[in-house]
Write a protein that binds this DNA or RNA. Sequence first.
DNA 1: AATACGTTTTTGCTAATATCAAAAGGAGAG
DNA 2: CTCTCCTTTTGATATTAGCAAAAACGTATT
Lengths: 267, 267
Amino acid sequence: MTTDDEPRRIQSADRVCDILEYLRDGDQTTVSEVADAVGLSPGTAHTYLATLESRGFVRKRDGKYQLGLALLPYGEHVRLQNNLYQAAKAELHRLAHDSDATAHLMTEYEGRLIVLHEAFGENAIGTEYHPRKRERPQTHLHCTSAGKAILAHLPDYRVARVIEDQGLASYTSSTITDEAELVAELETVRDRGFALNDQEQMHGIRAVGAPIRYDGDRVLGAVSLSGAASNWSGDRFRRDLPEKVMRAANAIEVNLHSEPDEGISPD
Amino acid sequence: MTTDDEPRRIQSADRVCDILEYLRDGDQTTVSEVADAVGLSPGTAHTYLATLESRGFVRKRDGKYQLGLALLPYGEHVRLQNNLYQAAKAELHRLAHDSDATAHLMTEYEGRLIVLHEAFGENAIGTEYHPRKRERPQTHLHCTSAGKAILAHLPDYRVARVIEDQGLASYTSSTITDEAELVAELETVRDRGFALNDQEQMHGIRAVGAPIRYDGDRVLGAVSLSGAASNWSGDRFRRDLPEKVMRAANAIEVNLHSEPDEGISPD
DNA sequence: AATACGTTTTTGCTAATATCAAAAGGAGAG
DNA sequence: CTCTCCTTTTGATATTAGCAAAAACGTATT
């Protein structure tokens, strides 16, 4: 035992996190898969899973383990206590209806996108892109309009770190996978005030995103509007919708300032 | 140490759950509050919180601890993998629009209601009842239309257990707090196929709920529609909306059967 | 059917670690 | 500036998480 500098941790708490994380990313796993994913003996992994199951954090459905329903209220609680969500909720709804598309409120966390809220325009449902395929809820920033809008307003060193940590994975043939190209794109986004995503994350889907800033300084997140590429002709995609999205983002910024509540958001 | 019959547990995993649960129910707590809520020394509690914070499960905002953003994706994952959600999503949206009210998809878990999804009609926003007051996301069954719809189709012994475990807390002056009265009400609900909630959970809010059943047997959850009491006149509240809600519930039941996926939902 | 294999689950034992007390460090009040 | 209260760190120890191996299941395989 050399010098023990790092603050102390509860190893088992980390293990719990590891297990939940693993279940979140994969899904429908077995005891032994979990065991060697987190580096435990099957016996011990079993004890963890049994404990978590009895707490509802994990669910066992015919031999396989998956995340349990009890987690839902936690996510909901986080959402409700989030200022950005509170400030944006109504505006997002309005935006979705006004443009008859799908609107998302997103924020960045550890280099990934987290969806804070989702609103659908009247005829937008079905168009939306959770095609039953259960994608992981966290996406890369570089391939979405909201992500690019956020990146464009993050300080350079943070952008660099995101790229280093997360890489520039290719989702479709249009995804920007080159760092220089991305940096140039971010410049454009910053200048014109909104970001476009032309089937860069998913074929057939276009999106428009605008940043939500605080004090004209920190980016707290972004709003985006997405829909089927076929419905979004040139002008609508490049002019009308961006305008609507930016107006919504602006309205949210105003709301943020008028929130008497506590201080502002994360990180 | 006597005979150790119960299956083994990871005590620290339980502690993690205890802490998260405590943070979910209260909110904005301090180290020492957490410490004696879960029965640990402040020092140890601190180590737990520090670990969980570094994992994003918990967040420290000027000395106070609260649940962290990292939890959101877990809830989202659970929602996306839920069959009932998948089967109901589009229908809920349609219902909300069609009636221009707020629609909820709920399921029962451990005697409480869990919100699986929420959809707003075009003008329904603002009417909705998350009045920034951060209520805990889990509510009693007996005081909501969805809850009553579910209870009405649960076997008697389960209803009895829910009442015993959760009690019949009084939310407003109209809340049913008498067991016999509730049982009678459930009978009515079962007969006519839907449940009403006339300001029983919150003053000024009315709601209509219908159960979602599988095989005409198990209840998987319920759909409900809610809105301002002042907008919902007698006929609309007691006839038109119930009809819409029941139609939606039915459509969802049909979807559930046509899901090729895996088996069906939880306990 | 009977056997063999790959799991999961249980169990005994031990090393690792979660835990407490108490000290040290901060922050806010008087 | 000092006192007090809370958080954070630290040292020492009892508890428990962890492994290995055995037992119990389930499922192929012959």
